[in-house]
Design a protein around this nucleic acid. Structure first.
Lengths: 253, 253
DNA sequence: CGCGTAGTTGAAGGACTTCAACACGTGTGG
DNA sequence: CCACACGTGTTGAAGTCCTTCAACTACGCG
């Protein structure tokens, strides 16, 4: 038992996330909390990690959201995914000592640093948690595959609709309860970089979706009007709702 | 020590792959070999797992290659990635009990079945191997991000070039030595589904690349003529060459 | 030899891009 | 306090890349 657990201090967002999938013992939660070595506050727009720069840390998102992106030789940019509270990010530093992607804060954020060896220790000492992290990583892989499919095989309306559904689904987890209106801190240029479109065409797509009554916008506030229809239309599946855990061994004594 | 290791029987392709990244103890290799419960032989074109079908197994590719794909409500198909000897596939079954994607044999294949609980046991008993699998999964994530960027932000020539470079790089690992000519068992329709293009346009792109002297084709045999230039042109990076392991704990005694 | 699959080509059309201009809101310095 | 700059959003017109449709060729296999 750590002091944190005795005094009931707030758990790491990672521990909260993982306990959503699996009932963790307090030893396991303590071990996850103990990964973190210091918080870092990021204003919206700040860069946490820069592509091709050296990295020896991972981070846990505690609050706010970020995105990871790749810069192209030709000058373009592709936004790869968005990261929310409870996500373990910068995992490319696990496989290499150079960052594969750039991490940028979308909103004001708080992230906690995790040294790589601490994660190694977690795999060694907590029998189940490593497996659970692997499962979450597999789920993220599938979510990325969905994005790939969206960009490779759908038109601009479906692409944008899928992304908006994805963002609202993820934001709801932290917001709690039913939310159908979200505050989007992304520019249309950002959305274009995420969708493989130009900002001009993102704008036209927004207006077309409004004209069809799919969404409503007021400034940066965006409302999805017919969510069920939109999900059917795009074939959207929330990959983060559940993760199977029955295959994991029992927790260590 | 298992019998297999005593008599020097062939190691699982997964053990071979992992020992490329990290010097494994014979205990660790035995544990990895012990994951596998029976081989399965697949002719080219056969389906190993069908999207939305039930799954309770993972597979290790021992020989040949496969691809995973998603079918769209609209009838289209997106090929997500190719899997080669040493890959652990069907990992979406780790996170759910339904398959997220379809797995299809590209060439004649041999795969070994791995029950999910066996993998859980591996995470519990082999301190380092779980972490290594997590690192490999992180690398796969980045490779997928590269594909996403390719499809989202590149024109057809760059997309096709990137894919061809990727395939030759991966095939070389098993072929061993320098190979600049590969036998492509993929149809142009397959390539289109992988690249987010139509088969017609894949054909035109091939011919354009030939005309520019980038590649040569004779039937299904394909030669990359100026690999270095092509890599610079596309910004291709082989994400599987190395995986950092210095952060892993020491092997169990 | 004929049939099916894969590859190839042309012509027309459409989705998205590019370029360019303007509108709007916000913050900052004169 | 207003002028101005700047980032973001919006719109039009022209152009490009890729798709669609349709036909035809080449190849392998019964």
């Amino acid at each position: 038992m750590t002091l944190a657990s005795l005094v009931g201090a707030r758990r790491s967002a990672l521990a909260q996330r993982l306990s959503h999938y699996l009932r963790l013992t307090s030893d396991e939660m303590d071990a996850i909390d103990a990964l973190e070595h210091g918080d870092r506050r990021l204003p919206a727009g700040a860069t946490l990690i820069d592509q091709d720069g050296p990295v020896d840390m991972l981070y846990v998102v505690q609050h706010g959201w970020l995105h990871s992106s790749l810069r192209l030789p030709s000058g373009g940019r592709q936004i790869l995914r968005f990261h929310y509270a409870g996500d373990l990010i910068g995992t490319s530093s696990i496989a290499w000592s150079q960052a594969a992607a750039t991490l940028t804060a979308v909103s004001d954020c708080i992230v906690s640093a995790v040294p790589k060896p601490a994660l190694g220790e977690l795999f060694a000492t907590q029998r189940r948690v490593g497996g659970l992290l692997f499962a979450v990583s597999a789920a993220e892989n599938v979510a990325m595959a969905d994005r790939l499919t969206s960009i490779g095989r759908m038109d601009s309306i479906q692409r944008l609709a899928t992304l908006l559904l994805d963002i609202t689904a993820r934001l709801r987890v932290t917001a709690g309860g039913v939310v159908d209106t979200i505050e989007l801190p992304l520019t249309q240029a950002d959305l274009g970089d995420a969708l493989g479109l130009t900002k001009v065409h993102v704008n036209r797509t927004f207006r077309e979706m409004e004209a069809r009554g799919m969404i409503a916008r007021h400034g940066r506030r965006l409302t999805i009007l017919h969510e069920a229809e939109l999900k059917a239309f795009t074939g959207f599946v929330d990959r983060y709702e559940t993760v199977a855990t029955e295959w994991l061994p029992a927790a260590a004594a």
